[in-house]
Design a protein around this nucleic acid. Structure first.
Length: 430
RNA sequence: GGGGGGUUUCCCGAGUGGUCAAAGGGGACGGACUGUAAAUCCGUUGGCAACGCCUUCGCAGGUUCAAAUCCUGCACCCCCCA
């Protein structure tokens, strides 16, 4: 085998729990194994939390194992109660289908599907679950689940004995589906190891038990820690929402900035969990962070690495250029298209081009129109306090009139109030 | 059923006839500092055709040259006694 995957995962802190601590290291190093992780289609894109799982799968592949990525078309219809304090709303079938398509696209991006022996496999559990009749499922699968064992699982226990919320039969049955997936993948692909977040332990062990009961085979499980910040919150959530992998939902710039702003206390874990940087480089970054925290070398390396990985070279380039501009570089000689990319997250307003002719448009009116100022008085104040910028040049004079020569590109002008609040004005011809 | 207190600008909260666009604090915003952090400091914080004008102090009327402030009615909230 190419590398000692278990030792690497362990060094990175990616192993939370396994079903066979003694056995797994040698087993993984002595042959190519098939490993599976499931992904929930709760949205049409994966987010930062599931990225950790996906990257673990990728690590397995790079170490010579065969990864199976499962999109939960069937399980998504039911809803995993693990880690949820309340009953879920079921997703509509159409949404689900759309989500599966989006997620499969992302899974393909991280795994190699064309590398011979250990090419990745993409499956959707709807494909085999749909064929099951309810009666068959109860006889073949349900019979193997003692309810008293199911009741003891954390995911179920945490929902029982509460007055405000319970658990439906549907969600209660969820673990049977996931357990059966493991058995099915074992039969069809000789999959023997299931990996998941630490909240998946109950579902994974359920699958291992089921395989033993149905086919007398021994399977294995490994869980990873959840990606949490040092104050115990889920990573990848900001005030403005979740950080997604798809550029439609989270622009490369916003993605880059998320990592660029990770707290010192968290960035070490992120480097270990989410990058494939060498141990030496990570240790060197740890040292540089202790010695010169203000240089943010760890954050920058992390942001560049992940943006490149998720959005590619061009995404990274856009993010970099946007970063320069968002932090004050004067904006000139750009095209409408480039500005559109860079300011993808920025609100805009259309105005007739006519307003730039003659006298021009006063800076105060422009701020008010763009929404950066609540009123003209507010805009006036912003200028007087030195907080108004056009194309990142500070506007000193309250009397300033904007004309066509203030355009940053063919038809767009970039307004800014304060350090970070931007807005675009687009001037269209009549 | 009786008695008392309250309702103020984004929030809390002062103001009890003119000097009130309304103290103070919080929040927010701008500036400085800084590591794109935190803290700190300074400034701003109803609108506008702006040394002036208009709108705002629960709602609707009234007294007055002048009302957030006084009177009447209404709505809602709180407390005490039955």
């Amino acid at each position: 085998m190419k590398a000692d995957i278990f030792a690497d995962l362990s060094w990175r802190g990616l192993i939370h729990q396994t079903t066979a601590d003694e056995f797994l290291p040698n087993w993984l190093n002595s042959g190519s194994r098939t490993v599976y992780i499931g992904f929930d289609p709760t949205a049409d894109s994966l987010h930062v939390g599931s990225m950790l799982q996906l990257l673990v799968l990728r690590r397995f592949q790079k170490a010579g194992h065969r990864p199976v990525a499962l999109a939960g078309g069937a399980t998504g219809m039911i809803g995993d109660p693990s880690g949820k304090s309340e009953e879920r709303n079921l997703l509509g079938v159409d949404d689900l289908r759309k989500n599966i398509v989006g997620i499969e696209k992302q899974l393909k991006q991280f795994l190699d599907f064309d590398c011979g022996e250990n090419s990745a496999v993409l499956v959707n559990n709807f494909d085999w679950m749909r064929k099951f009749s309810y009666l068959d499922f109860l006889r073949d699968v349900g019979k193997n689940f003692p309810v008293n064992v199911m009741l003891a699982k954390d995911s179920v226990k945490s929902r029982l004995g509460r007055d405000d919320t319970g658990i439906s039969y549907t969600e209660f049955s969820y673990m049977l589906l996931q357990a059966y997936d493991f058995v099915h993948l074992n039969r069809q692909y000789q999959c023997e190891l299931q990996v998941g977040g630490s909240d998946q332990w109950g579902n994974i062990t359920a699958g291992i038990d089921l395989a033993r009961r149905m086919h007398s085979v021994q399977l294995y499980g490994l869980t990873c820690p959840l990606l949490l910040t040092s104050d115990g919150k889920k990573m990848g959530k900001t005030e403005s929402g979740t950080v997604w992998l798809s550029p439609e939902r989270t622009s490369p710039y916003a993605f880059f900035q998320y990592w660029r702003n990770i707290a010192d206390a968290d960035v070490g874990n992120c480097l270990r969990f989410l990058t494939e940087l060498s141990h030496d480089e990570i240790l060197a970054l740890d040292e540089s962070r202790a010695a010169a925290p203000h240089e943010c070398q760890s954050q920058i390396r992390l942001a560049e690495y992940l943006t490149q990985l998720v959005h590619g070279d061009s995404g990274l380039a856009t993010a970099r250029r946007a970063t320069d501009i968002f932090f004050g570089a004067v904006i000139e000689n750009l095209s409408d298209r480039e500005l559109g990319e860079i300011f993808a997250d920025v609100p805009g307003k259309e105005l007739p081009r006519e307003s730039l002719r003659g006298e021009g448009l006063s800076i105060v009116d422009a701020l008010a129109e763009s929404g950066l100022a609540k009123s003209k008085g507010d805009g006036r104040r912003t200028v007087q306090q030195g907080g108004a910028y056009v194309n990142n040049r500070r506007v000193e004079n309250i009397e300033t009139q904007l004309t066509e020569k203030d355009l940053a590109s063919e038809a767009v002008m970039v307004l800014r109030a304060g350090k970070k609040r931007y807005a675009l004005l687009r001037f269209r011809d009549e």
